[in-house]
Design a protein around this nucleic acid. Structure first.
Lengths: 185, 185
DNA sequence: CCTCCAAGTAAACATTTGTTTACCTAAATA
DNA sequence: TATTTAGGTAAACAAATGTTTACTTGGAGG
């Protein structure tokens, strides 16, 4: 069962580096196999196991099922080294494909733990509801605020007591469905 | 110049859907071209323009330069519809490849705008410095806190006045180099 | 010790797919 | 109007690559 692990490892590395999957012969070569037959068998089994997707007859038609960065379940202290066990899942940007990011300016949403420089993930098709954090267009200016209703009127509320509520006319451009922050540039 | 846009659009869609690039013939077919020659010429030019990477002689050896989700520079209000102009760049998980994610439990770091449920991006190889937010291992428990030095002694500081500082022995497992938050599941 | 079998070898085979050469055509240009 | 040329057509060509068949082999198990 070790061979399949080596294949998966190779696939991960190769795809990350090249952006496309290796050919069966390249895999065979890496494993020091002299035939492609065994590799194909392993790949078919990996596909059955649900670890990869494989399109028959198509060159380099392999895709990993696990995409993105692994989410670790638990960290345990082995003797000298650490172990990261239990991959709870993988986080991938796939779920945010088709949307776009908007960089946060100012600190009007710190109350919602959104700070300057953060990237807000915007879904412009999602229907905005009361309580959602949204991108609003107010007099040609865009701001990220929380959508609320006061006295039957839609308003944009900052999450910082130093800023005041916006109850002018505005247009909701999209809903903030996520936040990405990157320290150290 | 319209044709190249159509090619790029097709590439984006195809790659997102299948996980690998289309063959030249598939592109030609999509554009309703009867020859592959023109497509290859366009692809070579796109590579020269720096929009794609292309590996000669390799099946489906195309990779988009723009990976991930676009970061919008500005939003302007066109008459009825909106326009998202100026792609400032693209955010990709590539930069975080090789690291892993840890889900935040508790609210001890709200002062740093990290809340429960957030995914902390952990770099276990980065050298921790004073002021960094780190993952610490204290008596077989992992916590995310800010690394600080008090009276010549390393300590872990929460960013929430309701929690108290940890000055027991601990081990730094990694540095938090980013945060990902996803609303709506 | 013999049998069986998973796993690999070897060698073709059949497509898929990138590349190339020669030619065509309509629109821009002189 | 004659010429040029970007961009496409057509048809081969040459690799790259998935697939298949027949054969070998080292070790687990009876």
């Amino acid at each position: 069962m070790k061979t399949k692990d080596r294949i998966m490892e190779f696939l991960r590395g190769f795809i990350e580096e090249n952006g496309f999957a290796p050919s069966i012969r390249e895999i065979a070569c890496h494993l020091r196999f002299r035939s492609t037959k065994a590799v194909k068998a392993h790949l078919d089994e990996l596909a059955d196991m649900g670890l990869i997707e494989k399109r028959g007859g198509i060159a380099r038609g392999i895709r990993l099922k696990e995409r993105g960065v692994p989410i670790i379940g638990r960290i345990v202290a082995g003797q000298p080294t650490l172990q990261f066990e239990g991959v709870e899942g993988h986080f991938s940007l796939d779920r945010w494909k088709g949307n776009f990011l908007l960089r946060i300016k100012g600190d009007s949403m710190v109350g919602a733990n959104i700070e300057e420089g953060d990237l807000a993930v915007i879904d412009k098709d999602r229907e905005p509801r009361k309580g959602d954090i949204v991108v609003g267009l107010v007099e040609d200016e865009t701001t990220v605020k929380r959508l609320d209703k006061e006295k039957g009127r839609w308003v944009l509320k900052p999450e910082n007591p130093n800023y005041s509520l916006i109850d002018k006319d505005f247009q909701v451009i999209g809903v903030v469905i996520g936040v990405i922050r990157s320290y150290y540039k």
